[in-house]
Design a protein around this nucleic acid. Sequence first.
DNA 1: ATAGGGTTAG
Length: 591
Amino acid sequence: MASFHGSQTTPSTATLTHSPIYHAIIQAGPRLKPLQQVHARILVTGYGRSRPLITKLLSFAYAATSPVSYTRHLFFSIPKPDTFLFHSLITLTSKFNFPRESLLYYRRMLLANISSSNYTFSAAIKSSTDLMAFSIGETIHCHVLICGYGLDVYVQAALVSFYAKSGHVRIARKVFDKMPEKTVVAWNSMISGYEQNGFGKEAIGLFYLMQDLGVKPDSSTFVSLLSACAQVGASGLGCWVHEYIARNCFDLNVVLGTALINMYSRCGNVSKAREIFDLMEEKNIVAWTAMISGYGMHGHGNQALELFSEMRVRGPRPNSVTFVAILSACAHAGLVDDGRQIFASLRQEYGLVPSVEHQVCMVDMLGRAGHLNEAYQFIKDIPKEPAPAVWTAMLGACKMHKNFDLGVEVAEHLLSLEPENPGHYVMLSNIYALAGRMDRVEKVRNIMIRNRLKKEVGYSTIDVDQKVYLFSMGDKSHPETNQIYLYLDELMSRCREAGYIPASESVMHEVEEEEREHALRYHSEKLAIAFGLLKTGPGVPIRIIKNLRMCEDCHTAIKHISVIADREINVRDRLRFHHFKDGSCSCGDYW
DNA sequence: ATAGGGTTAG
C-alpha cells in the first residue's frame, strides 16, 4: 500500500478496496456518526482529497437520516466534483427538502459543463415540483429530451408527478401514457394526481384499469384511492379497499389509517371512522385532526370537543389545521362559548397566529348563532384588510338572519374587492329578493349576464352498486331520464300534499331564464335522490354528495321525502353532512 | 464503484 504514504497522490481503486480505511467506511454503514469518525481519520491521515474515499463516504451518507450538511461538507472538500458528486448533492438536498438549494447545484453543474444523468434529472424535477416552479420543471423536461433520457422510468415517473402536482393533469397523463413500462409508482403518481386535482372519478377509473392490467397495487395506491373514494363518496369501493387491505395483511400504518378515517367519515360513516381511529397504534396530529373534522362534518360538536380535550391531555400538539377542524365543528353545532375559548387558546396557549380560515370559522360560528354584531366587531378587529372569505362568511350570516342593511353593505364591499366573483352577485341578489326588492334583483342579474358571470354549476353524485352516477341540475343525460323525472314529479306532488311549499327564494340560485324554469323542481340532489330511490330496495339508505351547499328548498323537500319514501337520506354538501330521517335532519335546520 | 421515482387532514 505504498500509494497511501503521499498525501499528494490519490490511491487507486484496486489498492483502496484493501485498505483499512475503506473497510472502516463499509463497517460504519449508513450511520452518520461512525461515518464522520472514519472521515476524521481520513483527514488526519492526509487523504482528505481522495476522490474514491470521499465518493464512498458519500454513497453511504446517502442512506443516513439527516446527512445534508455533512454531504455539503464532503462535496466542497473535493476540488473538481464529477457527475456522481453532483448527483449525490442534488439528490440529497432534494430528498431532504432543500429544493431551492438542490436546483442551485443543478444549475452549477450545467455551468460547469458536467453532463447530468437520469439520476440527477429525477431529483431536479422533484425539486421543481416541491418549489411549484412550473417553468423550471418544463425547462428540465427539455434538458431530459435533449439528453435522450425521455424514456427513463424514473425520470418519467418524476415528470408525471411534477405535471400532476402543478395542476397539468392532462400533460401528466400524456407522459404517463408514453411510458413503455409503467411501474406501480407511476400508476400511484397518476392516480394521486387525478385525486389531488379534484378528478376523483378519473382516479378511480385509472385504478380499475390498473387492476385489469394485473398491476399489483401497494399501500400508496390505496391511500390515494381512498382519498378519491372520500372525494366522490364511493363508499362501496371504499369498503372494498378496507376489506382488501385487511385480507392481504397490509400494515395499518398512520397514513393508511388516516386515509380510511377520512374515507369513512366523508362517506357518511363516522362510527366506522372512530373504530379505525381506536384501532390505530400510532396516531399523529393528522389522524387526530381527521377524526375531529369527521365529527365536525356530521354536526357532532360535543364528540369533537371531547376528542380535542383528550388530545390536549394525552395526544400530539394541535396545529393550525386542527384548529380549523375544531372551530368549524363548534360552528356547525352552535357551540359558541367553546369556540370562543378555543380560539383564544390558539394564540395564548399554542402560540399560533390566527389564519384566514380561523377567522372565517369564527365569523361563521358567531354569525350562524345570530351574534351578528359580535361577528362584525370580530372582523373590524382584524389588523389588516380582512380576506374576502371572511366577508363572505359575514354575508352568509346576514342572509341567514335576514339582515338586509348590513347584508347589502357587506355585499357591496365584497364586490369592490372581487368584482369577478359570481357567488357574491348571487348572494346580493338573494338578499334583495328576501327584502322584496325585485327591481334590484333584476339589476344585479343583468350585471351578471352582461359580464358573463356564471355561478359554479351544481351537481350531485350517488353511489349505487359500486358505481358513481352524476347528476347536474335539469340533467337529462341519463338513459332512464324519463322514469327519474316521472318519479320525482310524483314525489314532489306528494310532498306538496304533505304541506311542502316550494320556496321562491331559491330560484335565484340560477341566473339564466331557461334554468330558472326548472330550477326548483330539478335541483341535482333531487334528481339523484329520485334515481337512488328507484334503484335501491326499501331500507337501503340513500347517500348523495353535492358540490355546493344545499339550498333551503331542497332541505325542506328532502325532509318530506324521507317520510314519504320511508328512507334514510344522507347528503354531504360542500360543508357538512345532513342525515334526513323521519322528516327531520341531523343538522337541526342549523347549517 | 457509487444511487433514484409516488403517500395522508379542513
